[in-house]
Design a protein around this nucleic acid. Sequence first.
DNA 1: AGCGTAATGGCAACCGGTAGCCAAGAACCG
DNA 2: CGGTTCTTGGCTACCGGTTGCCATTACGCT
Lengths: 341, 341
Amino acid sequence: MINSEGFSGKAPTIYDIAERAGVAPSTVSRALSKPGRVNERTRSKIAVIAAELGYVASTQAQSLTTGRTGSVALLVPDVTNPFYFDIIRGTQLELRARGFTLLLIDTEESAEIELQTLRQLRRTADGLILAASRLTDQQLAEEARRQPLVTINRPAADAPTVLLDTPEVMVQAVDHLASLGHKSITYVSGPTGSWSNHRRWHAIEAAASKRDITVRKIGPYLPNTSSGAAAGDAAIGTGATALVAFNDLIAIGMLQRFKARGVRVPEDISVVGCDDIFGADFCNPPLTTIASPIERVGRVAVSMLMAQLDAKPGDAARKLAVIPTYLKVRNSTGPAPRNPD
Amino acid sequence: MINSEGFSGKAPTIYDIAERAGVAPSTVSRALSKPGRVNERTRSKIAVIAAELGYVASTQAQSLTTGRTGSVALLVPDVTNPFYFDIIRGTQLELRARGFTLLLIDTEESAEIELQTLRQLRRTADGLILAASRLTDQQLAEEARRQPLVTINRPAADAPTVLLDTPEVMVQAVDHLASLGHKSITYVSGPTGSWSNHRRWHAIEAAASKRDITVRKIGPYLPNTSSGAAAGDAAIGTGATALVAFNDLIAIGMLQRFKARGVRVPEDISVVGCDDIFGADFCNPPLTTIASPIERVGRVAVSMLMAQLDAKPGDAARKLAVIPTYLKVRNSTGPAPRNPD
DNA sequence: AGCGTAATGGCAACCGGTAGCCAAGAACCG
DNA sequence: CGGTTCTTGGCTACCGGTTGCCATTACGCT
């Protein structure tokens, strides 16, 4: 209480250790960071003193000379979107295993914040992982040229990308609905700037056209449950019997809305989501959706970034990783109603 | 492609700007960080050049002299636990508004990782926010003495704390169940190391004893849905009619398990959760739970931390913030069954 | 005009490490 | 035993900013 500022004085530096050990600071530095470079006896003496003092190297000082900061930034459009939970976790776990720190940024679905953060972090992070970037292709390419970057669910020239293979499985979803007798499918579109949104829509369109099924699109909607509620109302208006939503958040929002309005799922209408987020298995009814090992996406993104950081000029970096996905049928899809209005 | 390393050369420094502007580096530094200190014409000239070059100050270099890193670490036991997501978001938003960066750490429910990270970050972060710390009181006090710290849902000597006032509302939950005719309540306990777990249990115990209601405790269980499923089975074994769970994750896990085993909620058994996490409103049935403005918890934690950072010796810091909570009645609670086994 | 004071910008030290270069001593070799 | 090479540790410059101190100039005022 005497000194409300003084958090136990200053942290010890290599100079403190050097003094105690009777060696030069540079020796301490070497003892700690390149063990082979100094005599074993000297090294262990220094190690002991460092431990006693509770020495921790200043990462900022280190990064100043080495150019490495030991941290990687992950930019997500919305931290509260459960889809990103596992990406965050996968990233964080893999990063920690490699001795890196995670800088988490919520870009609030804004390209501007994203861009500004990207610039801000140029010096601060060794590399960036962009989940569902809202930047234009050009901006993305530009940034990729400036700093090591990996994108998730968004291809970019010059930057490695991790993709969830959801479009592939959209075909299965269409087949699933077709086999249940649905003749028409309505796609509930996500945000306009989202690349995966376009990709999913095209996949559905293509799959449907091969099967004599008509498709329609409503939206765009923000990827959250309240927007999903709005989408639910819109869907009822169109008389659709089969809905494929951009993601589970929207799908769950629709489910809630349908329940509130007395529309039965799947008797009156079938709903397919995408991502298999937390909650998809216990909503009412449990949601048929497209699942994938999302945590792995984060891990893979990290390892691709690391490969990029360690790359010698001339190394051909792996540019693309596609993570498999699969259709998970639960209770939100069922036979097409006999006589739709 | 010519040079896979060279991400557009080096970032510009104040020396580059100084040269272009024909002034000394120190002038550039001042122009950028203390505008009043230099002539307005000089300042604007420098500002223009800085903008042209896309200059961004190196935070590590800055922190080296100023001692401020501009980043705050948030430690959570499990990033995939939705409860923390709004805390993360609140923290991140408030931090960004104040020009700080968020370092997110998942401690994997481990006191050891928590402690190790705390040490690691001593130099790297200006302060730490510990959500649901698993440390002992002593460890916590020790760390609080070493660096600016704020805890969430965990009181600590020497560190400001943000508390959710859930125990207060546990009383309401007990009343709610009592008014529905329940004579006995079973508390489904969370992790042993969790302070809020103890606190909630004691609140229930106290409230029940005043109302001639018997209480029981089962557990401990990990705060996730699979553990909740196990808790569900255990609860069935005890013949309980009213369950209050440590948190929503456990409650939802129980709900799922009950559904699978044909136990009707709330007809056969009532369930109360805690936290009102994402999913509590759309699970089946929607969960009666204790809600609170969780995002605000994060914001308040940040502002208490900032107050601590800016404190002059002698300032009496606010040591405790209690965030109100309230009972949200949905469909998982109902009248006690007439003739329980 | 003369003097005090404020405004402005440069110099240089410093923050805490890293790394290149060099010298002293040890070990090795013919 | 002299010469060469290796090992080890110190010295010093440097990374990119910040800041205390000082010199210069401009300005205000009597």
